[in-house]
Design a binder for these strands. Structure first.
Length: 281
DNA sequence: ATTGAGACCTGTCGGC
DNA sequence: TGCCGACAGGTCTCAA
């Protein structure tokens, strides 16, 4: 479920229970997530204070007093449950106690008494513990593209990253080295806002020398708009209830003013893309 | 160097 | 009801 807006939402949920708080203990119930847990995971975390909880793309990073960093990724199905002092348990509890427990892989016991549980049925998530140098050299993190909501992400940056790429534009947007944090939903959404076809070559938004064309400006602001809206909506309405422009709306009318098109689904690189073949060019 | 296909793992949903 | 395939919001690896 998690793309940048959802990960940012999770970060904001965790921040008050983690930042400036001490980790009293950690239970690892199942260490075989996408990446096997590092050695001494529990020992290296226990007793540490979380100094800051930040996000980069879809990654969460807890800076520890030991100056190591706890790196976390939610994969496809990861979530955190916060319980204990100062919190009201999450609705998950009532639903499926059994499945919830079955996929609880890591439990952080904070010295405040709060408990933070990482649950991930598909186990595509990851947790890792990295020194400052290892973090800077991390093969994925060090190559992440700009944060889409930062000033560093502009039409020039996007055009440069897309220059010469023959991949369909939608696929380029999913490449975290182009821009960090877009996923399958918001890539489709942004392309619809920008009125650009997901099928056109990525290189077409740049000139041969990598200068941004008008389409690059449109796409950049569409990405910012779509992500900002989603972050704001989550902040107001605590999860779900999302209404997308095209995602999962196959066969339904295009919502663009005066567009007679019908939303279509097509598979690109093994993933569903939703778009309006009439207005998106 | 790019790019597509398959793999990873579990759950859910619709059709027969 | 039960079985089966298709599909799910992410990423990695491997072969062409």
């Amino acid at each position: 479920m998690p793309e940048l807006p959802e990960v940012e939402f999770v970060r904001r949920q965790l921040d008050p229970v983690m930042t400036h708080e001490r980790i009293a203990d950690v239970e690892v119930r199942r260490p075989d997530l996408r990446v096997r847990f590092p050695r001494q995971f529990r020992a290296r975390l226990t007793g540490q204070t979380v100094e800051a909880l930040t996000r980069r793309g879809k990654y969460l990073m807890a800076d520890l007093s030991s100056s190591e960093t706890l790196l976390m990724h939610l994969g496809m199905s990861g979530s955190f449950r916060i319980e204990g002092p100062g919190t009201r348990g999450s609705g998950l509890r009532t639903r499926r106690q059994h499945d919830v427990d079955r996929h609880d892989h890591v439990v952080f016991h904070m010295s405040s008494g709060a408990t933070i549980t990482f649950n991930d049925p598909r186990r595509f998530g990851l947790m890792d513990l990295l020194t400052t140098t290892a973090l800077a050299r991390h093969p994925v993190l060090s190559r992440l593209g700009p944060e889409p909501l930062s000033p560093q992400f502009d039409a020039s940056a996007l055009a440069r990253a897309c220059k010469g790429r023959k991949t369909p534009l939608k696929i380029a947007l999913l490449d975290q080295r182009v821009v960090a944090g877009l996923g399958n939903i918001y890539a489709s959404e942004a392309l619809h806002v920008a009125v650009l076809s997901p099928r056109r070559r990525a290189s077409t938004i740049a000139t041969p020398t990598g200068q941004p064309r008008e389409t690059a400006f449109r796409l950049t602001s569409a990405i910012k708009q779509v992500l900002t809206e989603a972050v704001d909506r989550l902040a107001r309405t605590s999860y779900r209830s999302a209404r997308f422009r095209v995602y999962d709306r196959e066969g339904q009318p295009c919502l663009r003013e005066n567009c007679p098109g019908t939303v279509r689904r097509r598979v690109q690189a093994g993933r569903s893309t939703f778009y309006c073949p009439v207005c998106q060019r």
